[in-house]
Simulated scan of single mutants.
Amino acid sequence: PEMVIVVLREHKARQDAAKEAAPVWHDDGLVFTTSTGRGIQPRNVNRWWDRVCADAGVHRTRVHDLRHTSATLLFRAGVDLNEIRALLRHTRIATTADIYIDVLEDVRRGTAASMDTILGRLASSTRPAVTECDDGRGDAEVPEG
């Protein structure tokens, strides 16, 4: 997304400045690094995320839960499940559908409403017209033949 590109460019500018100012920089080509250019340890990312949640006054979640949230929001917005699979780099679409997509209640209601519309159209297009032998009371005799 464009807004992510803008934020990443700003981050790169700050990182380039930090690289110039650092007495030692290990350039491993990473996007997010320590102050010396090394990779960030996962436990430090988790600690940082815990502080973000606490500062925001929200229930603590795992960083990995952001993947689930992203997938669910994309699915809710109508993004094709195969596109979400590719974004999450899953090899099987079943992994994406079974594990990462929490179908929201309003999506379920929307699905039910869509099925109601489909069934309503089918019923109106396949319902037989009233015939001479059917007066609509249900007690008409049907001629053989």
Rank of each mutant, 00 (worst) to 15 (best):
A140M: 06
D116V: 03
S114H: 09
H59A: 15
S125K: 08
L122C: 09
D16K: 01
A77Y: 00
L74K: 05
D98H: 11
D98M: 09
I101R: 12
D65A: 10
L104P: 02
A56H: 00
V7S: 05
R109C: 01
N82M: 02
D28K: 13
V45N: 01
S125N: 00
P128E: 12
R109Q: 15
L74R: 07
E10M: 10
H26V: 10
K12A: 15
D65G: 08
R62M: 14
A71S: 04
R38C: 10
A17Y: 05
R43G: 04
R121C: 03
L119F: 09
V45P: 07
R127L: 10
G57L: 07
W49V: 00
V4N: 02
A94Q: 12
T33Q: 05
R108G: 04
R51F: 05
E105M: 06
R85D: 06
E2K: 14
V52I: 11
K12P: 00
I99W: 04
R9I: 05
T96W: 07
T72A: 01
A56M: 01
T111S: 13
A94G: 05
R109N: 08
S35F: 10
R47L: 06
T69Y: 14
K19N: 07
M3D: 14
I40D: 01
T117W: 03
D116I: 04
A94E: 12
V103Q: 02
W25V: 00
R76V: 10
E144T: 14
Y100E: 10
K19M: 13
V103W: 11
L8R: 07
T96V: 06
R85W: 03
D28L: 15
L8M: 12
R47F: 04
W25H: 01
T61C: 10
H26C: 03
D16Y: 00
L87V: 11
A123T: 02
